[in-house]
C-alpha cells in the first residue's frame, strides 16, 4: 500500500496574487505530496466541491485581498455540509493577528502568515493529516 498525501491549494476570492500559493504547491510536491491547484478567483462552492471530488487530505487556502473572514469559514461550512469533515483546512495570506482566532473558531486549523518557512507548512501537514486506520 502506498498512501500519498493529497493537498488542494486553493485561491478563494478575487485577488490574483498567486506567488505564495504556487511556491507552496511546489514545496508540497517536493515533499512528495500530490497537489491539485485551483487557479485564481475560485468560489468557496467550487473549492469545496473540488476537495470532495479529489478526496484530498488537506485544503490550503490562500487569500491576500482581506476577504478571508468571509471566504474561509464558507469553505469550512460547505465541506461540513458535504460530510467531508475529515479534511484538514489551513489558511494563509495577509491576515492580521486578530483574525487568526476568529478563523480558528470557524474551523481553520492553522493560519500561516507571510514569512512562514515552507518546512513549517510541510511538517504541519505531515503531523496533522488524519489518515484513516
Amino acid at each position: 500500500m502506498e498512501q500519498k498525501i493529497r493537498v488542494l491549494v486553493a485561491k478563494p476570492g478575487l485577488d490574483g496574487h498567486d506567488r505564495g500559493a504556487k511556491v507552496l504547491a511546489r514545496a508540497f510536491m517536493d515533499a512528495g505530496m500530490e497537489v491539485i491547484y485551483t487557479g485564481i478567483r475560485r468560489t468557496p462552492e467550487q473549492i469545496a466541491e473540488v476537495a470532495v471530488q479529489e478526496d484530498v487530505d488537506v485544503v490550503a487556502l490562500s487569500c491576500l485581498s482581506g476577504a478571508h473572514n468571509t471566504l474561509f469559514p464558507k469553505v469550512v461550512d460547505l465541506l461540513r455540509g458535504k460530510g467531508a469533515d475529515d479534511i484538514l483546512i489551513m489558511g494563509g495570506g495577509v491576515i492580521p493577528e486578530d483574525d487568526i482566532s476568529f478563523l480558528k473558531q470557524h474551523g481553520i486549523s492553522e493560519v500561516f502568515g507571510p514569512g512562514t518557512p515552507l518546512a513549517t507548512c510541510v511538517n504541519y501537514i505531515r503531523s496533522h493529516v488524519k489518515k484513516e486506520a
Binding site: 485577488d15 476577504a67 473572514n69
Partner: peptide, 10 residues
C-alpha cells in the same frame, strides 16, 4: 455576488 467580502478591501 462574487464581490461579497471584497468590497472596499484593497
Amino acid at each position: 455576488p462574487l464581490s461579497e467580502g471584497e468590497v472596499g478591501k484593497v
